[in-house]
Design a protein around this nucleic acid. Structure first.
Lengths: 273, 273
DNA sequence: CGCTGCTGTTCACAATAGCTGAACGATGGT
DNA sequence: ACCATCGTTCAGCTATTGTGAACAGCAGCG
């Protein structure tokens, strides 16, 4: 593990919507580095376009990140397909849909389409992370990871409560995830925000791996009456995306390893290092 | 300059829409590194989320890049404002508008809105770079950089010709840029694509620095009849953005660089329309 | 107007992080 | 069942990077 690269990544992570601009001294203080070291990192990152120097000698995120992000989006197969299905969902229900992936044990919202009938959901924002245990998409994504990985995530990040309904114990989470895996979808019953429910379903690639999750978020009072129909709508939409990605089988999953050049040993066997 | 960080950035740059997936050996060959070195880079980048490991042990760009890109976009003041003006331009003319910044001597398209009357412009794509000397936005951006910098850029990248109209000599470029700077806008008269013209104007921040350029792209046969009106439309749109960013003065420019050490300051979001 | 407190930047030296090349283990193709 | 090729690991040497103090520029204040 290259320490210098790790530090550079740490530097990038400092830049947030709340503090989008950093100076050398601030970075040095935040990362417990000598000023000169922070300066090296910042200036090389800037010369590579990953940061940009402001006229005042401070630093902001650079446009190379936007470039790379665009190539990522353009080459992510499920995005375009999922977006089409999301548009149909919004057109049909007028509610808000989310598309999310699991990264580092958290949910990252990749796309969000808001319906005309929908209330503004402030918590979710494209490009934002949220804990996975409380949302529909999060539970879907967690449910299809090996249990040991889920345990590791929970040990690292805990199970913070957002509402009285949020799952806060690992036992409850285990039961819930099993259910989600068996039935093929997840509900969020006001677990992240009071008054807000959602249904989420998994998106699979051709190998059966769950690579993303799609959801429909609905105000509670409109959710319960239509729950059944909402559920099938989301499931079918997600299924349709998976099919277009080349997924036909039922449940290959990571159990019977038939993947190409799979290095599953690192994940399946035991905890490494 | 931290060599390791530079190499890491080089690795990221390898990932393109044409080749979005790389293996250790390929990277090693492309960068003339020993396999083990390439492996170090790839695996640490992956562990930081800047890359992701595919099940086959190969690598793709990681979602952290998307995250960082989003925070960049959200904290870039001119984007939201410019987007509104671009929508008005498209609504009024039905043509295609571009928003671009200068990065590394090249034009990077940040936003593109296509009008219903417009023909598909394949060359420009959000997130894509193009040489600066041939497009309207490029000439605007170059015109407001110190001449020595322009010379350095040309020496590094040359003046590749796209059409018979493309500027291919540094003398011609100097004259053109002077004109652009004086008149406050730039034309592209079929210099990047035969049959396509455009008008571009600069967007300035509160210090007068040109930070971006906006343009209207129009088929040649529709461009010349309406040139005057198109020009004023783009100029006024860009001017409006600059004003909302806090630009009042005339031409502070980079002569007498008053480097405001102002921190995030009061965001330029002065008034909402 | 010239202080003083901050910035970001530069430099030499010391030591540690990382580059190197070969050997490993596992995969897919023949 | 083989071989070719891939990603991964390891231990040693070299060069890169971390270090801390001194430098230069700007803002604000007296």
């Amino acid at each position: 593990m290259l320490q210098t690269v790790q530090r550079a990544a740490q530097v990038l992570r400092l830049f947030t919507p709340e503090q989008p601009e950093w100076g050398v001294t601030e970075v040095a203080a935040a990362l417990r580095l000598p000023k000169s070291g922070a300066h090296s990192l910042l200036s090389t990152l800037a010369s590579e376009g990953l940061l940009q120097r402001t006229p005042g000698g401070r630093y902001r995120l650079g446009w190379s990140l936007f470039e790379h992000s665009q190539t990522l989006l353009e080459t992510t197969d499920f995005l375009l397909i999922a977006r089409r299905m999301m548009e149909q969902l919004v057109a049909g229900w007028g509610e808000t849909t989310h598309l999310a992936v699991l990264i580092d044990g958290q949910v990252l919202y990749v796309e969000k389409l808001q319906g005309d009938r929908a209330l503004e959901i402030v918590l979710s924002r494209v490009g934002k992370r949220l804990p996975a245990h409380c949302s529909g998409v999060g539970k879907v994504l967690l449910a299809h990871r090996p249990w040991e990985e889920v345990v590791a995530i929970v040990e690292r990040q805990g199970l913070p409560a957002f509402t009285p309904n949020t799952i806060t114990t690992i036992d409850r989470l285990r039961v819930e995830l099993e259910e989600v895996r068996l039935q093929g979808f997840a509900y969020d019953q006001e677990e992240v925000m009071v008054g807000l429910c959602c249904v989420a379903a998994p998106i699979r690639d051709e190998s059966g791996q769950v690579i993303a999750a799609m959801s429909l978020s609905v105000p509670a009072y409109r959710f319960y009456p239509y729950r059944q129909r909402l559920t099938t709508a989301v499931i079918e939409a997600a299924r349709h995306v998976s099919t277009q990605l080349g997924y036909y089988g039922e449940e290959p999953e990571w159990t019977s390893v038939k993947r190409s050049r799979s290095r599953s040993s690192a994940r399946a066997t035991s905890v490494r290092t």
